[in-house]
Every structure is written in C-alpha cells, then in structure tokens.
C-alpha cells in the first residue's frame, strides 16, 4: 500500500466519522427545546435604554463580548498585514504597489464618484442611528468600507476618492478601538465596573458624578448613554480594518 492509498483511506474514514457525528447532532437537535432564558430579562429592561434591542444587548449587557469580537477583527487585520510583510521579524518587507493608479472609463467615473458619497452618507446614518433603528457600528462601518472598495476598484489605490494612506487607516483603526477601550475605562474609573454605561447611569447607587453622566449621555430622546459613542468607535474600527485589508490585498496584486 503506497502513501496515496493511505491518504485516500484516511479521507474515507474521516468522511464516515463525520457522517456518524452529523447524524448524532441532527438526532440531538430534534429534542432541542429552546427557552427564552436570560434574553427575556434583557428584552424586559432594554426599552428603558434605547429602542433597538440588538444594539442594547450587544453594547450594554454583552458590551465586553463585543469588545472581544472587535478585537478578533483587529487581530485578523494585523495578521493580514504580517502575512504581507508588515512587522515581520528582521524588518518590514516592502510590497510594490503597481496597481496604484487606474484609468477608469467615463461610465465608471460618472457613476462611481457620486455613488461613493451616497454610500458613505448611508453608512454614517446607519452608525449614528444604530441605537434607534436597525443598524449599528459594525453594519455602518462595513457599508462605508464598501464605498472605499468601489472607489479603489474604479480609481486605483493612489488617486481614489478617499486617498487614505496605510498609515492613516491604521491610526483610524487604533482610534476606533481606543474609543471603545477608554469608554470602558471611564466606567471603571467612575463606578468601579468596566464598561458601565455611565451616560445612562442605570444604577444610581454607584455614585457616578453628575458631570460625567451629562458628559457621556448622548443628546437625543433615548437614554442610550455611551452606546452611540461605542457605535462610532466600532464603525471607525471596522471601516478602517476592512480598508486596510483591501489596501494590502490590492497592493500585493501585481507583485
């Protein structure tokens, strides 16, 4: 029996086991009864903060998980950078960006430029209204990033509508993440609990100073507190994260 046969046999064995496992999981799922659980409490108390329940759960009760999710994305973006030579031990590897400029056709030029502005405006609306209407930082950031993609695909890396350098994208990403982390630290410093929603001041017994509550309370009819600010931080981070990845990939395209 040669090596190829062994590999084939291994695949067959793996497939059989996967099949058995899948049947077992499906069988178990037939007896899966879902209870409302802790999300019932979230939904009960949530409307006193802001109307969009998903944002309230993501950024208030599970705000710290969301911070972790954001850092998964940050780690992935950094790793993409390392894959293409940024930060490799022994000095950075420079990638030539021959795809820097492109000559768009007239149709592309006429349609792309206004469309980019419309998409950016739409993304900003989604972000800022994230606590009221469906949306939020992740969604808004991704939408704005698609405008960047469009602009880069049509006009090339160097002379596009945004003309953001790699460096400024990194700064944006850092600022976005730091907004989130520092709002958490503000909660820790003022109330003793990390990511406490200082602006909403849900538990007045913690003795948060009134000036801090006023400072971090988002000025609209809801009682969302720091949630819109967290949304802005996440949007900056997601947008610049995606843009960094596309910049790196476009730059490496014709190496």
């Amino acid at each position: 029996m040669n090596t190829k046969d062994i590999y084939e046999m291994r695949t067959v064995v793996a497939a059989v086991f996967l099949g058995i496992f899948s049947i077992f999981v499906l069988k178990a799922l037939t007896s899966f009864e879902i209870i409302p659980g802790v999300s019932y409490v979230y939904n009960l108390q949530g409307p006193s903060i802001a109307p969009n329940m998903i944002t309230v759960i993501l950024f208030d009760w599970r705000g710290y998980d969301t911070l972790g999710e954001a850092f998964i994305l940050i780690t992935a973006v950094f790793t993409t950078g390392i894959l293409f030579g940024r930060g490799v031990l022994g000095g950075d590897v420079k990638v030539r960006d021959t795809a820097a400029t492109r000559q768009p056709s007239v149709v592309q030029k006429v349609f792309a430029a206004p469309l980019v502005f419309i998409i950016v405006a739409f993304g900003i609306v989604i972000t800022l209204g994230g606590h009221i209407t469906p949306g939020g930082g992740f969604q808004g950031g991704s939408v704005i990033a698609t405008a960047f993609f469009l602009s880069v695909v049509v006009f090339g890396l160097r002379k596009n509508v945004f003309s953001l350098s790699h460096r400024s994208l990194e700064t944006f990403e850092g600022v976005g993440a730091l907004i989130y982390l520092c709002l958490g630290l503000a909660g820790l410093g003022l109330s003793g609990y990390y990511l406490y929603n200082v602006g909403a001041d849900f538990y007045p017994g913690l003795g948060v100073a009134q000036w801090a509550v006023n400072l971090l309370s988002y000025p609209d009819a809801t009682n969302a507190g720091i949630i819109p600010y967290l949304n802005i931080g996440i949007a900056l981070k997601v947008l610049s994260g995606f843009c960094t990845i596309i910049t790196v990939l476009m730059g490496a395209e014709k190496k």
């Binding site: 209870i35 409302p36 659980g37 802790v38 019932y40 409490v41 909660g187 609990y193 990511l195 406490y196």
Partner: peptide, 16 residues
C-alpha cells in the same frame, strides 16, 4: 461584573 449589572431573582417567564 462587567457593566455593573447585578444578579437578579429569576422571572418565571424566562423558563430558567
């Protein structure tokens, strides 16, 4: 406790 949310008595509707 992140976000300072305390433990509460479980409402019956949760099914917990």
């Amino acid at each position: 406790l992140f976000g300072a949310h305390p433990a509460i008595d479980t409402p019956a509707e949760t099914g917990i």
